[in-house]
Design a protein around this nucleic acid. Structure first.
Lengths: 148, 148
DNA sequence: TATATATCATACTAAATTTATATGTGTATT
DNA sequence: AATACACATATAAATTTAGTATGATATATA
């Protein structure tokens, strides 16, 4: 019950892409990896998943790179994270199912279904635009605090 | 972002203990392991964590075993699962923090804090009593469906 | 058309975590 | 004293996660 580093990379990259896209041009994996200090090759794998889930689109070749497939305000944290993480509902096949089906079913219905709904609704209510704007405000405060 | 098998064992065991406790006596780890077809020694490790978190209490020696530390209606899925799993807020120390603090902070505030609250509130609203009662009703239907 | 810059694909490795097992000690009941 | 249980610790196997390595494919531009 923990979101992986990979999921955080995906969110951070999505915010970074949204930010820089507003100033025009595609954004290369290398430049994001540099800015965020993430392994470029690893990030490419993250992007492959995000593309497959239609969160990012890409252009090959020089001046190529990535963009959000939809607008920042249409792309949610849920979109990004479900592209990366297994769903929390995703039940490992074994467990107590065979031996105590009524207990397994009770746990699914009473714990995991409502939990999954709560997670989904929480993550769907935050967009990349929200995150970007918060980050920009933060950046200003941080700069101010440093007397810049 | 996935609840481990261990967490499911803990929930299943808590339900089983609550069920059998109503018919009196302590419940041994062995008997639960047998019923649920879980490794006994592994289950003991799960119980050690549940004890430490004050979800279970125990009695040593013959006729000993485990019980819920509080009543079934006072014990929630949250109590059981937080004894086992790392919290979802538990942030892996690295990530993008150093290189892009404003992005890291935005993700924490906009995604993880609300998510953690949503998870907590969802899990706290389900008690072991709820799960037990659902399981009993299920058991009846299953028996009926088999013409028993 | 050559070249540079980018995505895309696949295979591999290392480390960490999860799921167990194994073996034994301590404690209370009969 | 024998038994039935919890409790403790060490180890092993399997799986997952994070990251590398290598190279192929596409495309803008000189």
């Amino acid at each position: 019950m923990r979101i992986s580093v990979k999921g955080r990379y995906a969110l951070a990259a999505a915010i970074n892409i949204a930010d820089r896209a507003e100033r025009g041009g595609n954004i290369s994996a290398s430049s994001i990896a540099d800015e965020l200090k993430i392994s470029k090759i690893y990030l490419e794998q993250v992007f492959a998943q995000l593309k497959k889930a239609n969160v990012l689109s890409s252009v090959k070749g020089p001046k190529g790179g990535y963009r959000l497939a939809k607008s920042a305000s249409e792309t949610t944290a849920w979109d990004v994270l479900t592209a990366i993480e297994l769903s929390i509902t995703e039940v490992p096949e074994e467990t107590v199912r065979a031996s105590a089906p009524e207990i397994e079913m009770s746990i699914s219905e009473n714990v995991f279904k409502p939990l999954d709904d709560a997670i989904k609704s929480s993550l769907q209510s935050v967009t990349v635009r929200d995150m970007l704007e918060y980050a920009r405000r933060q950046d200003e405060s941080l700069a101010y605090a440093q007397g810049i």
